[in-house]
Design a protein around this nucleic acid. Structure first.
Lengths: 190, 190
DNA sequence: GTCTATAGCTTGATAGAC
DNA sequence: GTCTATCAAGCTATAGAC
């Protein structure tokens, strides 16, 4: 008790993350989330008006850590940009190789909510992807390559393609093939 | 009445397709599918032992038409292979531009069922993607390009990346950017 | 092979005490 | 702000008639 509102809220979001990401959004009940967060359902509904709001809060909370992890995967790789982009995909492939990895949470949310186009979580997913695309564009532009916006977008397409195909085939080799193509996209031609 | 077993079964699958693809798998109840198919739930359970079996049958029924449509999009485009690959993505972008399009049914099923790794529908999704990848490899190999398997895989990564990103952003321009990159991947270098 | 009817459980959300 | 208690509706699946 005497736990302030902020930490209760975060505890609920953390429980929602474990279940929404681990089992799927529609498969996770408010009962299960309440149990995992060690609060009652009534407390969840005090902090979030509805399950849809909790879904949106879950995705919003994933934005920053996901962005930071991927940016670090690129930044911590030594070498020029093509080498760094390859490093990003190699780190991704490594992360995919654990049983805990179950796809990109943003793609999976968009997939589950495809029948509800006006869902508040959809714009959060879109903004997250656009944010990383813009970050990549800056990195590419800094090398002096032409068409940095197009190249950044194509790297993103390979990144999400890797997430989709590894989810389907359960084979991180697809991420490495994507990394090769992505590195070539940011390589200066002679 | 006097409808044979085959057509009842197909009618159920057709109703399941409309709801599973349109609203999502977990969001579609057996009640709703029965109503749409104009049969009772008991009839569905006569033809399919469980909802999971119906999900697998739904995906299996999507394999051939999806494959044929995409193959036709490439075959019906005039020109060399890079032009045909670009045509494939242009046709895809056109299809995505309708309100009925709600992503790739196979990716979405894998996303919804990510929490159930042993689900029978998962291997159907994997086989479908591998089938088109192999078909692309044949087309690429026929042009004499090196590493046809790798190039086919990379085109697939861009294809699924386009499906994922257009689902998230609702902007077919992403599919065209993917098409440019895919065409470059199957272009002979000087 | 298809029906009516229902079991048995889970769902998202709410009432009202403290 | 968090609790106990509960609702009405929805869910997958089954029993048994014809």
């Amino acid at each position: 008790m005497a736990r302030d509102a902020r930490s209760t809220r975060e505890q609920i979001i953390q429980a929602a993350d474990a279940l929404f990401y681990g089992e799927g959004i529609r498969s996770s009940s408010m009962d299960a989330i309440a149990a995992k967060a060690s609060v009652t359902k009534r407390t969840i509904y005090y902090h979030f008006p509805s399950k849809d709001d909790l879904i949106a809060a879950y995705l919003a909370a994933r934005d920053e850590p996901t962005f930071a992890r991927q940016a670090a995967w690129l930044d911590e790789t030594k070498g020029d940009l093509p080498a760094q982009v390859l490093g990003l995909f190699e780190n991704l492939a490594r992360a995919m190789n654990t049983p805990r990895w179950k796809g990109c949470g943003f793609i999976r949310a968009a997939a589950e909510l495809a029948g509800t186009p006006a869902h508040p979580a959809r714009k959060i997913a879109s903004a997250h992807k656009k944010r990383f695309e813009a970050w990549l564009e800056d990195r590419i532009a800094a090398t002096g390559l032409s068409e940095p916006a197009l190249r950044a977008r194509q790297v993103m397409l390979l990144l999400d393609g890797a997430a989709a195909q590894v989810l389907i085939h359960r084979d991180p080799a697809y991420a490495l093939a994507a990394g090769q193509a992505a590195a070539a996209l940011v390589t200066k031609t002679a």
